[in-house]
Write a protein that binds this DNA or RNA. Structure first.
Lengths: 197, 197
DNA sequence: GACCGATTCTTACTGGCGGTAAATACTATG
DNA sequence: CATAGTATTTACCGCCAGTAAGAATCGGTC
């Protein structure tokens, strides 16, 4: 008898070993089962991706809470959060790639669905904080999606492209998010760069 | 005789009509050709996605330049840029989805490749600006990837999930990017929200 | 212990798609 | 008209997600 968890574990193992392009057959084999069992327990490929995404999200949250710990300073907490995210995603590199790919045409909708799971609770916290600060809380949802997208992209880049320390990247991102492009004292009025999208 | 451009046009048409999950066969048919011709002119599926991404990027840049126009104020330019991006991507919704999906396992690498095309030139501008401001320019690349990811995610969300005005979303994002989470005067010291990733 | 229904697993298959090789039509040139 | 070379299509392969129908197994009942 093989339960859902067992299959998800097997999926994680084979993904870690063989990369994000794994076939359902390979996962079934790793779990010592046949394909229809996987479909019976988990569902279609996107369901598998969702389930693994949930696991990954749990680990991210757990790691973030541990990293933030007792830090009270806002900016310091932000750095710890970002750094924790970077490192946790690097730790589960292939899983992250599998989840962010998922293949299939409706991938973007799934990306959005995943982002929503992070962004919605974040938005609640953010809105409450803004409110307590006496500022407009209506920005919370948009900011949260933005934050999730930012972290996603930078993680993707950092994982596959560079080896500069997570600490540095986290610090730099925190600087942007905490103080903004135009934050801090300026020597003289200037124009922002002509960014290209 | 059918040239590359003709096929790319056909691809855009059929993507706009039938969504991002189009088969190469469908594109060939729309172009009045057979599949091997598409492969001869364009290459594999990822090459097609890259080519279309290039077109989309061109339109984004063009629209951004038009939108920014003669605005000189930094924050105002930022708002215009973001808004232009949102609206242009909404205009080419299915194409955007096709490009950001591309399917196949190496999707994340492609996402990164696409992001790189935007982030690299942006980083140059940003670094120059920071330097002129007498600040540390080494943040430029990280910030650029972050900015691209943020805009991507928010665009995806805005396109498919909501109907609040682009103007509002752009304003809110600009506020975050320009002034930051901790920007502006604070009434009293506080902790940031316990964000979850 | 033998029969039987229900449930669980497996074998075997379908449909569709990306990608390609081999066959075919077409064009230019002598 | 022949022939060489090129452009195009037909026909195919391999792969994989997803499923249907058959095979085995288990639980209960007389």
């Amino acid at each position: 008898m093989v339960d859902r968890t067992h299959i998800l574990d097997a999926a994680e193992r084979v993904i870690r070993r063989d990369g994000a392009g794994v076939s359902i057959d390979a996962i079934a084999q790793e779990a010592g089962v046949t394909k229809p069992i996987v479909y019976a327990r988990i569902g279609k490929r996107t369901d598998l991706a969702d389930a693994l995404a949930q696991r990954l999200a749990d680990r991210l949250i757990e790691a973030a809470e541990a990293a933030i710990g007792k830090r009270r300073n806002g900016r310091t907490r932000l750095v710890a959060l970002i750094r924790s995210n970077l490192e946790t995603l690097a730790e589960h590199r292939e899983l992250f790639l599998f989840v962010s790919s998922g293949a299939s045409e409706e991938m973007p909708q799934r990306t959005l669905y995943l982002a929503e799971q992070s962004a919605t609770p974040m938005a609640e916290q953010l809105a409450a904080w803004r409110k307590a600060e006496g500022r407009d809380p209506s920005v919370a949802l948009v900011w949260s999606y933005g934050f999730v997208g930012l972290l996603n992209m930078v993680s993707l880049w950092w994982i596959t492209e560079t080896d500069r320390p997570a600490e540095v990247v986290a610090e730099q991102l925190a600087e942007l998010l905490w103080s903004g492009l135009g934050g801090g004292p300026r020597k003289r009025p200037t124009h922002p760069p002509r960014v290209r999208s």
